[in-house]
């Protein structure tokens, strides 16, 4: 004889709903904007002293760093660009320094020759 009160109160759609509730809960406080086929969203940042997200903020801070430093992609590129810029600047300065040394040497040689003659 079949028991009439046997019922299954679970379905796949229930599980999908609870999964979506989890995702929505995790997404709370993040707003998304769509412009020209691209998506932009704001990520709330905790103002913890140990977690710097800006390159300059981190570099010039007097606080001790935490165990982890999280950088977003744009900050990472900012660092790369700054390093490249600094390298090219150093190359230029080294080149200028060599020219100055050559010029100074030439002036000294001329001065010495003038003094001797």
């Amino acid at each position: 004889m079949l028991k009439k009160n046997l019922s299954v109160n679970y379905s796949m759609s229930d599980s999908v709903n609870t999964f979506r509730r989890f995702l929505e809960k995790k997404s709370e406080g993040i707003r998304i904007d769509r412009k020209e086929g691209k998506a932009f969203w704001d990520v709330p940042v905790n103002s913890s002293e140990a977690n710097y997200t800006g390159f300059l903020e981190f570099a010039y801070s007097t606080n001790l760093s935490g165990d982890y430093v999280y950088l977003d992609r744009s900050t990472a590129f900012e660092i790369v660009n700054r390093l490249n810029w600094m390298e090219s600047k150093i190359k230029r300065l080294v080149k200028r320094e060599r020219i100055m040394i050559l010029l100074l040497s030439a002036v000294l040689i001329i001065a010495v020759l003038g003094w001797l003659t």
Partner: peptide, 10 residues
């Protein structure tokens, strides 16, 4: 923030 991205894709 990957769950947020997944939520958006859903």
């Amino acid at each position: 923030k990957q769950w947020f991205i997944l939520n958006e894709l859903y």
